[in-house]
């Protein structure tokens, strides 16, 4: 008697066994101790994490250090990954906490002042040499670094994760371990402070966009 047997033609294998897996499946593989899944995870998340940490810390080298430790922590704590979290939330949370610890340890407000001045001088120099587009991008990063030193850690994180990274308020709340309403308050206060300080410290820069309102002054 003939029996129906399901068979599937083997498809061309991808570059790595995890290359086409979702982030969630990847983290489940990592949780099971799969080295290839971990390698693929590093390949996928290194760039966004370095960018996030660089914005938080204002320094590429420090961002690299934090990202390395982040992945080490991911591996060491892989059993703790819970399916109720989105993969990004879990990894971003580890990275954010490490970056905040890093900020605290180096007392960035005092130490960052001098590099900011130097960078602005370099920016002005590049403007003189006509490299306007590059200068503007670097200058925005420098200005953010300087102004955000006046924000609390949670305000800075909320602003970066929501406004720059584009995560949802709920995701930001999960990362910062607080309520969504708290995130909205952090964001509201961060925007208000940044707007006010932008007008006050860089009137020539912000002035080209907007005149300060009474509320800003």
């Amino acid at each position: 008697m003939l029996e129906l047997v399901y068979s599937r033609r083997p498809s061309a294998s991808p570059a790595t066994p995890w290359a086409e897996s979702s982030d969630r499946d990847l983290l489940l593989g990592v949780r099971g101790g799969d080295e290839a899944a971990f390698s693929e995870l590093i390949g996928r998340k290194t760039k966004p994490l370095i960018q996030l940490c660089q914005r938080i810390l204002g320094d590429l080298e420090e961002a690299r250090d934090v990202v390395q430790v982040t992945f080490f922590r991911v591996w060491e704590n892989r059993q703790k990954f819970d399916l109720k979290w989105s993969p990004n939330t879990w990894i971003y949370r580890i990275a954010s906490n490490l970056a905040i610890d890093h900020l605290r340890s180096r007392k960035s407000r005092e130490k960052s002042a001098e590099p900011v001045r130097l960078h602005l001088l370099q920016a002005a120099d590049s403007r003189a040499h006509g490299d306007l587009s590059r200068m503007q991008q670097g200058e925005v990063a420098t200005i953010f670094r300087e102004l955000s030193a006046g924000l609390s850690e949670k305000q800075r994180m909320a602003f970066l994760l929501r406004e720059v990274e584009g995560l949802s308020a709920q995701e930001v709340a999960d990362i910062l371990a607080c309520r969504e309403s708290t995130v909205r308050n952090h964001l509201h206060n961060a925007r208000k402070y940044l707007r006010k300080e932008l007008m006050r410290r860089y009137p020539e820069y912000a002035g080209s966009f907007a005149a300060p309102t009474e509320d800003d002054l």
Binding site: Q137, A141, V164, E165, F209
Partner: peptide
């Protein structure tokens, strides 16, 4: 002009240069 803090959206654009 309406919200100068929107300038910080450029942080994302700059980072994509890698």
């Amino acid at each position: 002009a309406a919200d100068p803090t929107l300038v910080f959206r450029r942080l994302k654009a700059g980072a994509d240069e890698m």
